[in-house]
Design a protein around this nucleic acid. Structure first.
Length: 273
DNA sequence: GCCACTGTTAGCAT
DNA sequence: CATGCTAACAGTGG
C-alpha cells in the first residue's frame, strides 16, 4: 500500500517522535520479517540513538549512532507505529523497539507479512541490493535524465511507471493518477510515445506526488502514519477506485481494466492515447 | 464455505 | 537483458 507519499508522511511523522532517542530493547516477535542472515544482528541497535529518518523510493531508512541503519519496506500492509508500551500489541506486530525515557515504542506491524526489516552499516546502505537497484527519486529528476531512463524501453506505459528500477516510489494508485493527470493511456506503448507526451508525463509525476504528500497520503484500507492516522488524499483521487463515476475533466464514465496484472483506472474520454 | 480481490515485488518463464 | 505473470500472506466482501 504505502507508495512514495505515504512513506514520506511516515518518515516525517517518525522524525518528530523518535529523533535523538536511545534504543533500550529490540523485541523480534516474528523473525522471518528480518532479512539479515543472522536475526540477532538487530540486537546491535541496542544503546544507539536515532540520528535521522530518510526515505528512498518506498523504503524507510532509520539511521542510528554507531553507524547503523535499519531499512524497512512496508510492501502492501506494513505499518510503522509509535504506540504506548501499555497498549498490548496485536498478533500482527512483528518487531518492537523501546527507547530510554520514552513511554512509546516503535512497532513494525504487517498483516500480510510481505514487508521486511534489514539492519546494515550506514556506509553500505547504497550498496545493499534493495537500495542499489532503485531508479532515481521522482521529486528530484530533471527532464533530460527522465528521458534518458526511458530511452530504449518498451512495454505498457503503466508498467514503466511501476518499475522501481526506472523511477523509485510510484505504485498502483499514483501510477493511475499520474496517467490521468498526463492524459495518457495506461496501455500506451512506451517506445511509441512522442517526446512531447513524455514531457507531459514527466511534469505530472512530481505534481501528483507532491499534492498527495501535502494531504498526507492515501488510505484505501490499511495505510496509517506513525501515529496511526489515516491519510486525506483518498477524497482527492481523480480515477483510482472511481470506476463508474464521471470523469472530473470530461464527464465520461471512468473505466477499470487490467494492465500487466494490475487493476487500472482511467478515463476513456481524455486518456485515449 | 468458496472464490475473487487487494496498495508490492522476487523469482521464474518467455 | 528486458518484459510479463505469479505466488508469497492474510483479510474482506460477495
Amino acid at each position: 500500500m504505502p507508495e512514495l507519499p505515504e512513506v514520506e508522511t511516515i518518515v516525517r511523522c517518525l522524525r518528530r517522535h523518535l529523533l535523538g532517542f536511545q534504543v533500550e530493547t529490540v523485541r523480534l516477535l516474528f523473525p522471518p520479517i528480518v532479512r539479515n542472515r543472522k536475526k540477532s544482528d538487530l540486537q546491535r541497535f541496542k544503546g544507539q540513538r536515532v540520528t535521522g529518518l530518510r526515505r528512498r523510493g518506498k523504503l524507510v531508512l532509520l539511521d542510528f549512532s554507531g553507524g547503523l541503519t535499519m531499512i524497512v519496506h512496508l510492501k502492501m500492509t506494513g505499518q510503522l507505529l509509535v504506540s504506548p508500551k501499555s497498549l498490548p500489541p496485536d498478533k500482527h506486530v512483528h518487531l518492537a523497539i523501546t527507547f530510554r525515557a520514552k513511554e512509546e515504542e516503535l512497532r513494525f506491524r504487517d498483516v500480510r507479512k510481505f514487508g521486511f526489516v534489514l539492519g546494515v552499516p550506514t556506509s553500505g546502505v547504497n550498496r545493499t541490493p534493495e537500495v542499489r537497484d532503485l531508479g532515481p527519486e521522482p521529486l528530484a529528476l530533471d527532464l533530460p535524465s527522465f528521458l534518458d531512463r526511458l530511452e530504449g524501453r518498451r512495454g505498457r506505459l503503466k508498467s514503466l511507471l511501476l518499475n522501481q528500477r526506472v523511477i523509485a516510489g510510484v505504485g498502483n494508485i499514483y501510477a493511475d493518477e499520474i496517467l490521468f493527470e498526463s492524459g495518457l493511456n495506461p496501455r500506451a506503448e512506451v517506445s511509441r510515445l512522442s517526446r512531447r507526451r513524455l514531457e507531459t508525463l514527466w511534469s505530472a509525476v512530481p505534481k501528483v506526488l507532491n499534492e498527495a504528500i501535502a494531504f498526507k497520503g492515501t488510505t484505501v484500507r490499511d495505510y496509517r502514519d506513525g501515529e496511526g492516522l489515516e491519510g486525506l488524499f483518498q477524497n482527492r483521487l481523480k480515477v483510482y477506485g472511481r470506476q463508474g463515476e464521471p470523469c472530473p475533466r470530461c464527464g465520461t464514465r471512468i473505466k477499470r481494466i487490467r494492465v500487466s496484472g494490475r487493476s487500472t483506472h482511467f478515463c476513456p474520454g481524455c486518456q485515449r492515447r
